[in-house]
Amino acid sequence: MSTLDVAVRAPASRGERLDPLALLALPATAYLGIAFAVPLVLLLVTSVWTPAGLTIDGYVKFFSDSYGWRVMWNALRAALWTTAICLVIGYPVGFALARSRGVVQVLLLVALILPLSVGVVVKAFAWTILLRSNGVVNQMLLATGIASEPVRFIFTEAGLVVGAVNIFLSFMVLPIFSVVKLIDGRLLDAAATLGASPLHRFLRVTVPLSMPGVIAGIAFVFSMAISMYVIPTLLMGDRYQTMSTLIARSYLFMRDRSLGSAVAVVLLGIAVAVVVISGWLARRSRDVR
């Protein structure tokens, strides 16, 4: 529809009527409403409503027991470590990617995008091989003299975090890259002209400007790490429980719906909180600019 059409038609529509284009959004919205939103609302309802009536049994069972807190702390601790390590090593890599040109940049992109596309199941399986006591990691540690005897990695939290960092790292690097490459180099030159030292330029110009990418990266990695399921299942085994594995167990093996749905709601709450907080932080960091 051309602007002319709009100008001619404008008086006829009162401005109150819904734009017919909105109808195009209807199929997707209706779909996600029925297959995504309604089930989540039903989950909330079933977590407090059983055939016997209103109850908070599931929540009581989860929170009253030290086991529930331990499970939650397991998930949080692994997610926090994973996110922190991803940030520390992902930040310089995001920079390197933005600075690199030509073949080097292509190689870096391949190294980031290929593992990202291969899928969690394959990579988690690979880490079960890498982390074995006679696995590659241990052979390297022994060969370089860092360790004098094989270190136990598989079925330890350190091993879990190493695997998770490996699998989620691209989600930290790519958002940082996409923001850093937009930073205007002249801003740094201007700061240098005004007498700022390299460290000062980095801390006062580069870091604030890269914050949107950092926030997005942290939000991605944390929300994936807190709810990871395949990785702990393969790298930690059955004895170690996180919220995800507990949900799966309560539904698939224990047939304990009230506990499962309660834990699912708690995990959902954490995910929503991450989205809301990161959105708020992102808006704030944009306003600072």
Binding site: A28, T29, L32, A35, F36, A37, P39, L40, L42, L43, T46, A219, S223, I226, S227, Y229, S244, I247, A248, Y251, R257, G260, S261, A264, L267, L268, A271, V272, V274, V275
Partner: peptide
Amino acid sequence: FAVSPLMMPGLVVGVALLQ
């Protein structure tokens, strides 16, 4: 709303749909 399934735990989405 349309993008939010990417940020929600897949396991919770699966459990909810199953139910």
